[in-house]
Design a protein around this nucleic acid. Structure first.
Lengths: 226, 226
DNA sequence: GTAATAGTGTCTTTTAGACACTATAGC
DNA sequence: GCTATAGTGTCTAAAAGACACTATTAC
Protein backbone atom coordinates (compact mmCIF):
# COMPACT_ATOMS: atom_id res chain seq x y z
CA UNK A 1 0.00 0.00 0.00
CA UNK A 2 1.47 3.30 -1.05
CA UNK A 3 1.27 6.65 0.64
CA UNK A 4 -0.71 9.19 -1.32
CA UNK A 5 -1.65 12.83 -0.91
CA UNK A 6 -4.17 15.19 -2.39
CA UNK A 7 -3.94 18.94 -2.15
CA UNK A 8 -6.67 21.41 -1.36
CA UNK A 9 -7.20 22.06 -5.07
CA UNK A 10 -8.08 18.41 -5.59
CA UNK A 11 -4.90 17.35 -7.39
CA UNK A 12 -2.47 14.55 -6.54
CA UNK A 13 0.48 15.84 -4.57
CA UNK A 14 3.78 14.34 -3.40
CA UNK A 15 3.29 12.23 -0.30
CA UNK A 16 6.32 13.84 1.38
CA UNK A 17 9.59 15.64 0.74
CA UNK A 18 12.73 13.82 1.81
CA UNK A 19 16.38 14.71 2.19
CA UNK A 20 19.29 12.31 1.92
CA UNK A 21 22.75 13.17 3.15
CA UNK A 22 25.89 11.71 1.63
CA UNK A 23 28.37 11.81 4.50
CA UNK A 24 31.85 11.26 3.09
CA UNK A 25 35.22 10.84 4.72
CA UNK A 26 38.58 9.21 4.07
CA UNK A 27 40.16 6.46 6.10
CA UNK A 28 43.33 4.57 5.28
CA UNK A 29 43.37 6.00 1.80
CA UNK A 30 39.79 5.04 0.97
CA UNK A 31 36.85 7.32 0.33
CA UNK A 32 34.03 6.16 2.61
CA UNK A 33 30.32 6.92 2.76
CA UNK A 34 28.08 6.58 5.77
CA UNK A 35 25.11 4.20 5.53
CA UNK A 36 22.45 3.15 8.00
CA UNK A 37 20.47 -0.07 8.23
CA UNK A 38 17.04 -0.05 6.68
CA UNK A 39 15.61 -3.50 6.33
CA UNK A 40 17.05 -6.96 6.23
CA UNK A 41 20.32 -6.80 4.33
CA UNK A 42 19.51 -3.40 2.96
CA UNK A 43 21.46 -0.22 3.61
CA UNK A 44 20.59 3.37 2.82
CA UNK A 45 22.01 6.86 3.10
CA UNK A 46 20.95 8.72 6.26
CA UNK A 47 18.06 11.06 5.69
CA UNK A 48 14.64 12.06 6.75
CA UNK A 49 11.52 13.97 5.91
CA UNK A 50 11.39 17.72 5.63
CA UNK A 51 8.88 19.16 8.09
CA UNK A 52 6.36 21.74 7.01
CA UNK A 53 7.97 25.18 7.28
CA UNK A 54 11.47 23.70 7.45
CA UNK A 55 14.33 24.51 5.07
CA UNK A 56 15.60 21.28 3.48
CA UNK A 57 19.18 22.36 4.26
CA UNK A 58 18.21 22.53 7.93
CA UNK A 59 16.72 19.05 7.70
CA UNK A 60 19.98 17.79 6.25
CA UNK A 61 22.07 19.52 8.92
CA UNK A 62 19.80 18.19 11.64
CA UNK A 63 20.18 14.65 10.33
CA UNK A 64 23.94 15.12 10.07
CA UNK A 65 24.04 16.26 13.70
CA UNK A 66 21.90 13.34 14.86
CA UNK A 67 24.11 10.81 13.09
CA UNK A 68 27.56 12.21 13.74
CA UNK A 69 27.20 14.80 16.50
CA UNK A 70 28.83 17.25 14.10
CA UNK A 71 27.65 20.82 14.13
CA UNK A 72 29.50 23.02 11.72
CA UNK A 73 30.75 21.15 8.67
CA UNK A 74 30.24 22.11 5.12
CA UNK A 75 26.96 20.93 3.59
CA UNK A 76 26.06 21.60 -0.02
CA UNK A 77 23.10 20.58 -2.12
CA UNK A 78 23.75 17.82 -4.62
CA UNK A 79 20.44 18.03 -6.43
CA UNK A 80 16.92 16.67 -6.51
CA UNK A 81 16.14 13.03 -7.10
CA UNK A 82 12.48 12.71 -7.93
CA UNK A 83 11.92 10.14 -10.65
CA UNK A 84 8.75 8.08 -10.24
CA UNK A 85 9.30 4.83 -8.42
CA UNK A 86 12.45 5.94 -6.59
CA UNK A 87 10.73 5.34 -3.25
CA UNK A 88 8.45 2.29 -2.91
CA UNK A 89 6.38 4.12 -0.30
CA UNK A 90 5.01 6.54 -2.86
CA UNK A 91 5.67 9.84 -4.60
CA UNK A 92 8.50 11.17 -2.43
CA UNK A 93 11.00 13.50 -4.08
CA UNK A 94 14.31 13.77 -2.28
CA UNK A 95 16.82 16.59 -2.10
CA UNK A 96 20.30 15.15 -1.67
CA UNK A 97 23.11 16.87 0.21
CA UNK A 98 26.82 16.30 0.35
CA UNK A 99 28.63 16.56 3.69
CA UNK A 100 32.36 15.81 3.94
CA UNK A 101 33.32 15.08 7.56
CA UNK A 102 36.68 14.58 9.31
CA UNK A 103 38.20 11.08 9.38
CA UNK A 104 38.07 11.06 13.18
CA UNK A 105 34.27 11.40 13.20
CA UNK A 106 32.61 8.89 15.50
CA UNK A 107 29.08 7.87 14.60
CA UNK A 108 27.01 7.04 17.69
CA UNK A 109 24.27 5.17 15.76
CA UNK A 110 25.08 1.45 16.19
CA UNK A 111 23.45 0.61 12.85
CA UNK A 112 25.79 2.99 11.01
CA UNK A 113 28.36 1.51 8.68
CA UNK A 114 31.04 3.14 6.56
CA UNK A 115 31.15 1.62 3.08
CA UNK A 116 33.55 2.19 0.21
CA UNK A 117 32.08 5.11 -1.68
CA UNK A 118 33.47 3.82 -4.96
CA UNK A 119 32.39 0.24 -4.35
CA UNK A 120 29.36 -1.42 -5.81
CA UNK A 121 27.42 -2.35 -2.70
CA UNK A 122 23.75 -2.02 -3.62
CA UNK A 123 21.80 0.58 -1.67
CA UNK A 124 18.11 1.17 -1.07
CA UNK A 125 16.04 3.52 -3.23
CA UNK A 126 18.15 5.36 -5.81
CA UNK A 127 20.90 5.90 -3.26
CA UNK A 128 23.63 4.31 -5.36
CA UNK A 129 22.97 6.95 -8.01
CA UNK A 130 23.00 9.68 -5.35
CA UNK A 131 26.28 8.40 -3.91
CA UNK A 132 27.91 8.26 -7.35
CA UNK A 133 26.85 11.84 -8.00
CA UNK A 134 28.33 12.88 -4.65
CA UNK A 135 31.69 11.27 -5.43
CA UNK A 136 31.80 12.96 -8.81
CA UNK A 137 30.95 16.32 -7.25
CA UNK A 138 33.64 15.97 -4.59
CA UNK A 139 36.27 15.01 -7.18
CA UNK A 140 35.23 17.82 -9.49
CA UNK A 141 35.33 20.58 -6.89
CA UNK A 142 38.38 19.31 -4.99
CA UNK A 143 40.88 21.80 -6.38
CA UNK A 144 38.46 24.56 -7.27
CA UNK A 145 36.62 25.23 -4.04
CA UNK A 146 36.79 24.98 -0.27
CA UNK A 147 34.67 21.80 -0.33
CA UNK A 148 37.31 20.08 1.84
CA UNK A 149 36.71 22.51 4.71
CA UNK A 150 34.31 19.94 6.15
CA UNK A 151 36.64 16.96 5.90
CA UNK A 152 39.77 18.57 7.30
CA UNK A 153 39.95 19.49 10.98
CA UNK A 154 39.67 23.18 11.87
CA UNK A 155 43.48 23.36 11.77
CA UNK A 156 45.49 20.94 9.68
CA UNK A 157 48.96 20.37 8.30
CA UNK A 158 49.75 20.25 4.60
CA UNK A 159 50.71 16.57 4.92
CA UNK A 160 47.36 15.82 6.48
CA UNK A 161 45.56 17.65 3.69
CA UNK A 162 47.67 15.95 1.07
CA UNK A 163 46.72 12.46 2.27
CA UNK A 164 43.01 13.31 1.99
CA UNK A 165 43.36 14.98 -1.41
CA UNK A 166 45.31 11.99 -2.70
CA UNK A 167 42.60 9.58 -1.60
CA UNK A 168 39.89 11.59 -3.31
CA UNK A 169 41.80 12.28 -6.53
CA UNK A 170 43.20 8.73 -6.50
CA UNK A 171 46.65 9.96 -7.36
CA UNK A 172 49.89 10.96 -5.65
CA UNK A 173 50.97 14.56 -5.23
CA UNK A 174 54.50 15.80 -4.82
CA UNK A 175 54.58 17.32 -1.30
CA UNK A 176 56.29 20.50 -2.47
CA UNK A 177 53.96 21.04 -5.41
CA UNK A 178 50.93 20.17 -3.33
CA UNK A 179 51.67 22.84 -0.75
CA UNK A 180 52.44 25.47 -3.35
CA UNK A 181 49.24 24.79 -5.27
CA UNK A 182 46.92 24.54 -2.25
CA UNK A 183 48.19 27.89 -0.98
CA UNK A 184 47.76 29.32 -4.48
CA UNK A 185 44.01 28.68 -4.35
CA UNK A 186 43.79 31.54 -1.88
CA UNK A 187 41.39 29.52 0.25
CA UNK A 188 43.67 28.67 3.18
CA UNK A 189 45.82 30.66 5.57
CA UNK A 190 48.48 29.79 8.14
CA UNK A 191 47.28 29.73 11.74
CA UNK A 192 50.77 30.44 13.07
CA UNK A 193 50.65 27.29 15.19
CA UNK A 194 52.86 24.26 14.74
CA UNK A 195 52.35 20.61 15.54
CA UNK A 196 54.88 17.86 16.13
CA UNK A 197 53.76 14.22 16.03
CA UNK A 198 56.68 11.92 16.68
CA UNK A 199 60.00 12.50 14.98
CA UNK A 200 60.55 15.05 12.27
CA UNK A 201 60.30 18.76 11.96
CA UNK A 202 57.03 20.18 13.36
CA UNK A 203 54.53 21.10 10.68
CA UNK A 204 52.90 24.48 10.27
CA UNK A 205 49.12 24.50 10.62
CA UNK A 206 46.64 25.96 8.18
CA UNK A 207 42.92 26.60 8.11
CA UNK A 208 40.37 27.42 5.43
CA UNK A 209 39.38 31.07 5.50
CA UNK A 210 35.67 30.33 5.01
CA UNK A 211 33.10 27.67 5.91
CA UNK A 212 30.63 28.75 3.26
CA UNK A 213 30.91 27.32 -0.28
CA UNK A 214 33.53 29.35 -2.14
CA UNK A 215 35.45 29.02 -5.38
CA UNK A 216 39.23 29.27 -5.37
CA UNK A 217 41.66 30.74 -7.87
CA UNK A 218 41.76 27.25 -9.25
CA UNK A 219 44.55 25.09 -10.42
CA UNK A 220 44.02 22.13 -12.61
CA UNK A 221 44.95 18.88 -11.01
CA UNK A 222 44.78 15.50 -12.56
CA UNK A 223 42.10 13.16 -11.31
CA UNK A 224 42.78 9.51 -12.02
CA UNK A 225 40.32 8.16 -14.56
CA UNK A 226 38.09 5.23 -13.75
CA UNK B 1 -5.70 31.19 1.12
CA UNK B 2 -2.89 28.74 0.71
CA UNK B 3 -2.92 25.34 -0.89
CA UNK B 4 -2.33 22.53 1.54
CA UNK B 5 -2.01 18.77 1.37
CA UNK B 6 -2.13 15.89 3.78
CA UNK B 7 -0.85 12.45 3.01
CA UNK B 8 -2.47 9.12 3.73
CA UNK B 9 -0.39 8.76 6.90
CA UNK B 10 -1.92 11.92 8.28
CA UNK B 11 1.10 14.21 7.91
CA UNK B 12 1.38 17.55 6.11
CA UNK B 13 2.75 17.09 2.59
CA UNK B 14 3.93 19.47 -0.14
CA UNK B 15 0.98 20.92 -2.05
CA UNK B 16 2.68 20.23 -5.37
CA UNK B 17 6.05 19.71 -7.05
CA UNK B 18 7.05 22.36 -9.59
CA UNK B 19 9.75 22.71 -12.20
CA UNK B 20 11.20 25.97 -13.47
CA UNK B 21 13.24 26.18 -16.64
CA UNK B 22 15.93 28.79 -17.16
CA UNK B 23 16.03 29.19 -20.94
CA UNK B 24 19.22 31.03 -21.86
CA UNK B 25 20.53 32.36 -25.12
CA UNK B 26 22.82 35.08 -26.47
CA UNK B 27 21.81 37.96 -28.71
CA UNK B 28 23.99 40.89 -29.73
CA UNK B 29 26.58 39.97 -27.17
CA UNK B 30 24.16 39.77 -24.25
CA UNK B 31 23.17 36.74 -22.24
CA UNK B 32 19.37 36.61 -22.21
CA UNK B 33 16.85 34.62 -20.16
CA UNK B 34 13.29 33.82 -21.15
CA UNK B 35 10.50 35.08 -18.90
CA UNK B 36 6.74 34.87 -19.11
CA UNK B 37 4.07 37.18 -17.72
CA UNK B 38 2.52 36.19 -14.43
CA UNK B 39 0.54 39.00 -12.90
CA UNK B 40 0.48 42.74 -13.29
CA UNK B 41 4.05 43.89 -13.77
CA UNK B 42 5.44 40.58 -12.59
CA UNK B 43 7.52 38.21 -14.67
CA UNK B 44 8.58 34.65 -13.93
CA UNK B 45 10.60 31.83 -15.42
CA UNK B 46 8.58 29.37 -17.48
CA UNK B 47 7.63 26.28 -15.56
CA UNK B 48 4.83 24.06 -14.45
CA UNK B 49 3.75 21.33 -12.11
CA UNK B 50 5.09 17.82 -12.25
CA UNK B 51 2.30 15.34 -12.84
CA UNK B 52 1.99 12.20 -10.77
CA UNK B 53 4.12 9.50 -12.38
CA UNK B 54 6.06 12.05 -14.44
CA UNK B 55 9.83 12.52 -14.40
CA UNK B 56 10.61 16.15 -13.52
CA UNK B 57 13.08 16.28 -16.42
CA UNK B 58 10.23 15.34 -18.75
CA UNK B 59 8.11 18.11 -17.27
CA UNK B 60 10.94 20.57 -17.94
CA UNK B 61 11.40 19.34 -21.51
CA UNK B 62 7.65 19.50 -22.12
CA UNK B 63 7.54 23.09 -20.91
CA UNK B 64 10.56 23.96 -23.04
CA UNK B 65 8.84 22.51 -26.08
CA UNK B 66 5.61 24.38 -25.37
CA UNK B 67 7.42 27.69 -24.98
CA UNK B 68 10.00 27.47 -27.75
CA UNK B 69 8.95 24.63 -30.01
CA UNK B 70 12.39 23.16 -29.40
CA UNK B 71 12.72 19.42 -29.14
CA UNK B 72 16.22 18.24 -28.58
CA UNK B 73 18.37 20.74 -26.75
CA UNK B 74 20.47 20.12 -23.76
CA UNK B 75 18.63 20.29 -20.44
CA UNK B 76 20.39 19.80 -17.13
CA UNK B 77 19.18 20.01 -13.57
CA UNK B 78 20.23 23.10 -11.65
CA UNK B 79 19.00 22.00 -8.27
CA UNK B 80 16.06 22.10 -5.91
CA UNK B 81 14.63 25.30 -4.53
CA UNK B 82 12.38 24.47 -1.63
CA UNK B 83 12.76 27.01 1.14
CA UNK B 84 9.54 27.83 3.00
CA UNK B 85 7.72 30.82 1.61
CA UNK B 86 9.26 30.63 -1.86
CA UNK B 87 5.80 30.22 -3.40
CA UNK B 88 2.92 32.25 -1.93
CA UNK B 89 0.47 29.53 -2.95
CA UNK B 90 1.84 27.13 -0.36
CA UNK B 91 4.49 24.47 0.20
CA UNK B 92 5.66 23.92 -3.36
CA UNK B 93 9.25 22.78 -3.86
CA UNK B 94 10.63 23.43 -7.31
CA UNK B 95 13.28 21.61 -9.30
CA UNK B 96 15.06 24.08 -11.58
CA UNK B 97 16.53 23.19 -14.97
CA UNK B 98 18.93 24.96 -17.26
CA UNK B 99 18.30 24.93 -21.03
CA UNK B 100 20.60 26.85 -23.36
CA UNK B 101 18.87 27.43 -26.73
CA UNK B 102 20.09 28.81 -30.07
CA UNK B 103 19.99 32.59 -30.65
CA UNK B 104 17.58 32.10 -33.56
CA UNK B 105 14.94 30.52 -31.31
CA UNK B 106 11.51 32.03 -31.83
CA UNK B 107 9.14 31.90 -28.87
CA UNK B 108 5.51 31.60 -29.95
CA UNK B 109 4.06 32.65 -26.57
CA UNK B 110 3.12 36.36 -26.95
CA UNK B 111 3.67 36.99 -23.25
CA UNK B 112 7.26 35.77 -23.48
CA UNK B 113 10.03 38.31 -23.03
CA UNK B 114 13.80 37.94 -23.16
CA UNK B 115 15.47 39.82 -20.32
CA UNK B 116 19.13 40.43 -19.57
CA UNK B 117 20.18 37.42 -17.54
CA UNK B 118 22.74 39.48 -15.63
CA UNK B 119 20.37 42.39 -15.04
CA UNK B 120 18.51 43.09 -11.85
CA UNK B 121 14.92 42.95 -13.03
CA UNK B 122 12.93 41.52 -10.12
CA UNK B 123 11.22 38.20 -10.79
CA UNK B 124 8.39 36.35 -9.11
CA UNK B 125 8.99 33.70 -6.43
CA UNK B 126 12.69 33.00 -5.88
CA UNK B 127 13.32 33.12 -9.62
CA UNK B 128 16.03 35.78 -9.44
CA UNK B 129 18.05 33.40 -7.25
CA UNK B 130 17.38 30.55 -9.69
CA UNK B 131 18.45 32.66 -12.64
CA UNK B 132 21.65 33.76 -10.90
CA UNK B 133 22.48 30.14 -10.16
CA UNK B 134 21.88 29.27 -13.82
CA UNK B 135 24.24 31.97 -15.05
CA UNK B 136 26.92 30.85 -12.64
CA UNK B 137 26.48 27.24 -13.75
CA UNK B 138 26.73 28.15 -17.42
CA UNK B 139 29.86 30.23 -16.85
CA UNK B 140 31.44 27.54 -14.73
CA UNK B 141 30.86 24.68 -17.16
CA UNK B 142 31.50 26.65 -20.33
CA UNK B 143 34.99 25.33 -21.06
CA UNK B 144 34.69 22.06 -19.20
CA UNK B 145 31.64 20.43 -20.72
CA UNK B 146 29.40 20.25 -23.75
CA UNK B 147 26.84 22.53 -22.08
CA UNK B 148 26.89 24.76 -25.18
CA UNK B 149 25.53 21.96 -27.36
CA UNK B 150 22.07 23.40 -26.77
CA UNK B 151 22.91 26.98 -27.63
CA UNK B 152 24.87 26.35 -30.81
CA UNK B 153 23.12 25.11 -33.95
CA UNK B 154 23.61 21.45 -34.89
CA UNK B 155 26.51 22.58 -37.11
CA UNK B 156 28.43 25.75 -36.39
CA UNK B 157 31.59 27.59 -37.31
CA UNK B 158 34.33 28.41 -34.85
CA UNK B 159 33.61 32.13 -35.26
CA UNK B 160 29.98 31.54 -34.42
CA UNK B 161 30.95 29.56 -31.34
CA UNK B 162 33.47 32.17 -30.33
CA UNK B 163 30.92 34.97 -30.31
CA UNK B 164 28.66 32.99 -27.95
CA UNK B 165 31.52 31.94 -25.67
CA UNK B 166 32.71 35.54 -25.48
CA UNK B 167 29.27 36.76 -24.45
CA UNK B 168 29.01 34.18 -21.70
CA UNK B 169 32.56 34.56 -20.38
CA UNK B 170 32.38 38.34 -20.83
CA UNK B 171 35.81 38.44 -22.35
CA UNK B 172 37.48 38.38 -25.77
CA UNK B 173 39.20 35.32 -27.15
CA UNK B 174 41.94 35.27 -29.73
CA UNK B 175 40.41 33.46 -32.72
CA UNK B 176 43.41 31.20 -33.18
CA UNK B 177 43.67 30.27 -29.52
CA UNK B 178 39.92 29.82 -29.25
CA UNK B 179 39.79 27.28 -32.04
CA UNK B 180 42.78 25.36 -30.77
CA UNK B 181 41.38 25.16 -27.25
CA UNK B 182 37.80 24.28 -28.22
CA UNK B 183 39.09 21.42 -30.36
CA UNK B 184 41.35 20.35 -27.49
CA UNK B 185 38.32 19.68 -25.29
CA UNK B 186 37.65 16.63 -27.43
CA UNK B 187 33.95 17.47 -27.43
CA UNK B 188 33.57 18.68 -31.02
CA UNK B 189 34.36 17.25 -34.43
CA UNK B 190 34.47 18.63 -37.98
CA UNK B 191 31.41 17.88 -40.09
CA UNK B 192 33.40 18.21 -43.33
CA UNK B 193 30.99 20.89 -44.56
CA UNK B 194 31.88 24.50 -45.20
CA UNK B 195 29.82 27.66 -45.12
CA UNK B 196 30.40 31.01 -46.80
CA UNK B 197 28.44 34.05 -45.64
CA UNK B 198 29.41 37.09 -47.67
CA UNK B 199 33.03 37.84 -48.37
CA UNK B 200 35.93 35.97 -46.87
CA UNK B 201 37.13 32.44 -46.86
CA UNK B 202 34.37 29.88 -46.14
CA UNK B 203 34.46 28.51 -42.63
CA UNK B 204 34.64 24.84 -41.70
CA UNK B 205 31.68 23.53 -39.74
CA UNK B 206 31.82 21.62 -36.48
CA UNK B 207 29.38 19.78 -34.24
CA UNK B 208 29.40 18.49 -30.69
CA UNK B 209 29.86 14.74 -30.57
CA UNK B 210 27.20 14.27 -27.87
CA UNK B 211 23.91 15.81 -26.73
CA UNK B 212 24.08 14.29 -23.25
CA UNK B 213 25.92 16.11 -20.46
CA UNK B 214 29.63 15.32 -20.79
CA UNK B 215 32.87 16.65 -19.35
CA UNK B 216 35.68 17.67 -21.68
CA UNK B 217 39.43 17.41 -21.35
CA UNK B 218 39.21 20.90 -19.97
CA UNK B 219 41.27 23.97 -20.44
CA UNK B 220 41.23 26.79 -18.01
CA UNK B 221 39.75 29.93 -19.39
CA UNK B 222 39.41 33.21 -17.64
CA UNK B 223 35.94 34.40 -16.78
CA UNK B 224 35.66 38.13 -16.25
CA UNK B 225 34.96 38.88 -12.62
CA UNK B 226 31.87 40.78 -11.58
C1' DG C 1 75.37 10.92 14.87
C1' DT C 2 70.73 8.48 11.99
C1' DA C 3 66.03 8.35 10.67
C1' DA C 4 61.96 10.75 9.89
C1' DT C 5 59.03 14.41 8.53
C1' DA C 6 58.69 19.47 6.92
C1' DG C 7 59.77 22.93 3.86
C1' DT C 8 62.51 25.71 -0.13
C1' DG C 9 64.39 26.47 -4.60
C1' DT C 10 64.63 25.61 -9.30
C1' DC C 11 64.56 23.12 -13.68
C1' DT C 12 61.46 21.02 -17.09
C1' DT C 13 57.09 20.14 -19.28
C1' DT C 14 52.61 21.50 -20.39
C1' DT C 15 49.10 24.83 -21.21
C1' DA C 16 47.41 29.27 -22.47
C1' DG C 17 47.87 33.90 -24.61
C1' DA C 18 49.60 36.99 -28.34
C1' DC C 19 50.36 37.84 -32.81
C1' DA C 20 52.51 37.52 -37.42
C1' DC C 21 51.56 35.20 -41.39
C1' DT C 22 49.04 32.49 -45.06
C1' DA C 23 44.46 31.07 -47.43
C1' DT C 24 40.19 31.81 -49.85
C1' DA C 25 36.30 34.22 -50.69
C1' DG C 26 33.46 38.82 -52.88
C1' DC C 27 34.01 42.91 -55.19
C1' DG D 1 44.18 44.57 -57.26
C1' DC D 2 41.59 45.52 -52.03
C1' DT D 3 38.97 44.05 -48.16
C1' DA D 4 37.02 40.72 -45.25
C1' DT D 5 36.86 36.45 -42.88
C1' DA D 6 39.21 31.81 -41.94
C1' DG D 7 42.95 29.29 -40.53
C1' DT D 8 48.26 28.06 -39.35
C1' DG D 9 52.58 28.53 -37.11
C1' DT D 10 55.33 30.00 -33.51
C1' DC D 11 57.06 32.84 -29.78
C1' DT D 12 56.15 34.09 -24.94
C1' DA D 13 54.14 33.71 -20.39
C1' DA D 14 52.11 31.19 -16.85
C1' DA D 15 51.03 27.04 -14.46
C1' DA D 16 52.02 22.38 -13.02
C1' DG D 17 55.20 18.42 -12.23
C1' DA D 18 59.73 16.54 -10.72
C1' DC D 19 63.26 16.52 -7.75
C1' DA D 20 67.50 18.04 -5.36
C1' DC D 21 68.47 20.30 -1.35
C1' DT D 22 67.94 22.41 3.40
C1' DA D 23 65.54 22.48 8.20
C1' DT D 24 64.05 20.65 12.56
C1' DT D 25 62.58 17.17 15.37
C1' DA D 26 63.10 12.18 18.20
C1' DC D 27 66.05 8.78 19.25
Amino acid sequence: MQWTATNSEGYAAPAALATDVVVLTVREGHLLALTVAREADERALPGGFVGIGERPLDTAQRKLHEKTGLEAPYVEQLGAFADPGRDPRGWIPSIAYLAPVPPATVVPDPSALWIWARGDMPLAFDHREVLDAAVERLEGKLWWSNIMVGMLPAAFTLSEARRLYEAIAQTRYDPATFGRDLKATGLIEATGEQRATGPGRPAAMYRFTSNRPEWGAGRRKRIALA
